[in-house]
């Protein structure tokens, strides 16, 4: 019915070849989707509707270069914990979000960090620790120091954002994309220089 070739010829060549795949992680209700939608569409969603898994992709200009950002907005709820692995595997960079007014969500970042590292098996995976809801400072439960300390520990950047006021929203996505880009360039340099070093260390630990 619809001209498939037309779509192909019109839409596809326009898309930049470079796609940076970003995954939003964090506990339920911390504002992953809000951040995503604010970044994507400049809109702030007031009402809360648990996400299952949403997918967004758009063209952005990163430091003068046209690239595509692909955002996978995952479910924060524990119910979906089991399917996370699959998602994480495809991610190139992670925004680990917690709510500054919810201590538990901050604690959960630890688990997410671990799961990501396990799946990606890479200590230097592009990763940003994001403290959301900065506009609700009066309800703050997680101090900036606390968060910064953890970021330092993980060797990642900590940024406080507000999906509501759009404070630092673009910054976290662009910073992450830059990290991803530099990682990719590094990787290509490596693969060009010498064959890819494969971590073939085998765990022989058996738990009885």
């Amino acid at each position: 019915m619809f001209c498939e070739t037309g779509i192909m010829s019109k839409a596809k060549p326009q898309q930049p070849a470079v796609i940076h795949k970003v995954i939003m992680v964090g506990s339920g209700g911390v504002g992953k989707s809000a951040l995503t939608l604010q970044f994507m569409y400049d809109e702030f969603i007031e009402d809360y509707e648990p996400t299952k898994a949403d997918s967004y992709r758009k063209k952005v200009v990163l430091d003068g270069e046209e690239v595509q950002i692909d955002i996978l907005d995952t479910a924060g709820q524990e119910d979906y914990a089991a399917i996370r692995d699959n998602y994480f595997r495809s991610g190139e960079g992670f925004l680990c979000v917690f709510s500054i007014k919810e201590q538990e969500s901050f604690q959960a970042t630890q688990d997410f960090r671990e799961q990501i590292l396990r799946v990606k098996n890479d200590e230097n995976i592009p990763f940003l620790l994001v403290g959301n809801m900065a506009d609700l400072a009066e309800q703050r439960q997680v101090t900036e120091d606390e968060a910064l300390k953890r970021a330092l520990e993980w060797k990642v950047t900590y940024v406080e954002t507000s999906a509501k006021t759009r404070a630092n929203v673009d910054k976290v996505f662009y910073d992450l994309m830059r990290e991803i880009r530099s990682r990719k360039m590094e990787a290509s340099r490596q693969s060009n220089g010498k064959p890819k070093k494969k971590d073939s260390k085998k765990m022989k630990c058996v738990i009885l």
Partner: peptide
């Protein structure tokens, strides 16, 4: 032409 950039949920 219209362009779809986001879908929730994706499956």
């Amino acid at each position: 032409p219209p362009l779809v950039t986001g879908v929730s949920p994706k499956e």
